[in-house]
Structures are given as C-alpha cells and as structure tokens.
Design a protein around this nucleic acid. Structure first.
Lengths: 103, 103
DNA sequence: CGAGTAGTTCGATGAAGATCGTACTACGAA
DNA sequence: TTCGTAGTACGATCTTCATCGAACTACTCG
C-alpha cells in the first residue's frame, strides 16, 4: 500500500480568482459540499455526480490546482479533502459563506 | 434629473454559483474591489479598467444579473454599488473573505 | 505473472463567454 | 431642437472550458 501526495499549489501560490472560478461550477461545488461533510476525506469515485469518470477527474484536477482540495493516493484510490485550513487563513469566511448557501 | 433602478434579482433569487462565477473573472473582481472602497456607489466609467466601454458594460451586466451589485441611473450616468447587505445575509463571510485577499 | 479495479490522460466536440467595433438610446446643456 | 456625453445592444470573432469515449497507468489480489 503506497501513499503519495498529488502536486498542489502552496498556500502562498493560491489565487483568489482561481478559487472563485473553481467554486463557480455546479459539479465542482457539489464536490466541495460533499467534501465539507466528510473532513477525513473521501474517494473521488464515491461522490455521486452526474458526469462520467473522466469529467470527474477533470473537475478534481481543477479544484486541486486551484488549491481548494488536496489529494493523496491510498493504493489505487485517491482520497481528497478540503484545504479548509489554508482557505480559512487566506480568505476567512469565504468557505463557510459558500457552504451556508442552501443548495 | 431622472432616477431609475435597473432590473436585478431579488435576494431570494440569487444563486451562489452565479455569484462565484461572476466574482471569478479578474476584470469583474477588480470592479467589485473598486465598489467595496466606495460604499456610496460609483459611476461605471470612473473605474479604471483594461477593457473597452462595451466590455465594461458586459461585465457590469453580468455582476448585476448575478446579484452582486445594484445600479441606478442619475441623469446619463449609472451609479453602481455592492449589494453587501444581501450578500452578507445570504453568504455570511463570503464577500469579506474575497476582499481580504491581497490582490 | 495475469486479471481486475480506480482513476487519469488525450484528443475531439460543442457550448459558453470575453472581447471588440459599430450603431444605437437616453439624458443634459446650450 | 441640436449637440455632446455616458453608456448600452448587437453581431462577429476568438478563447476557454465542460463533456465524452478510448486508451493508458498504477496498484492489489490471486
């Protein structure tokens, strides 16, 4: 069982435009909501989404490159979780404000 | 001197995806930052932007339709201001979080 | 090793949207 | 009512990006 962290921006490299653009897409917002409910992280495939696996991978990459989530491998699975600490430090209130919206 | 409010969504009609998508565009974020500095509102043309007037009008319309700002006419000018109260009520912390990002 | 599973990458496609120039509207001032 | 100004609407163009299927990688288990 190998464990590896996928490449992601450092906290200082996160740009607010990228974060907002990442969050502004319905499928990606759905992913973020799912991750917010499971702080321990979740395997990508376990989130129910109305898109194919390849599109799902695309959205997860977008979120990771924007700095919204972090992903590490656990065997063949990839576990993702919100970078809540980083986001709260950079943009206090943003994430909680977004999540407070009734979907 | 005539005064008229331009059409905009009610507070209940504002969708968080639209708000995030509107804020995720660099020029529009620049507009929002400028408006945040002048709570009394500002004429569109007075914001310095790297785009032509027609593109500026497009972005202002996008922000207004997303519910981010409100615009009323004063003679030939159009004064825009942030819908801070509505946004804070719907998504507490979102706006302040976004604005806290050092540009 | 071979088979199976989780997930990605690549290339193509179609839709959305940022941008611009031009023509237009609305208002105020002379 | 004519002129100038602020700003919009429209149509075209070009870019970005969400989506998919197919081929590929990486890992586990027998």
């Amino acid at each position: 069982m190998t464990r590896k962290q996928l490449p992601q921006p450092d906290r200082g490299e996160i740009r607010v435009e990228a974060v907002l653009q990442a969050l502004g897409e319905p499928v990606r917002l759905q992913i973020v909501r799912a991750l917010a409910d499971t702080p321990e992280g979740i395997a990508c495939g376990e989130i129910e989404l109305p898109v194919t696996p390849s599109t799902r991978a695309h959205h997860l990459r977008t979120l990771r490159e924007a700095g919204v989530l972090t992903t590490h491998t656990e065997g063949t699975r990839r576990i993702s979780s919100l970078r809540r600490e980083d986001l709260d430090a950079l943009y206090p209130g943003l994430l909680s404000g977004v999540l407070s919206a009734e979907q």
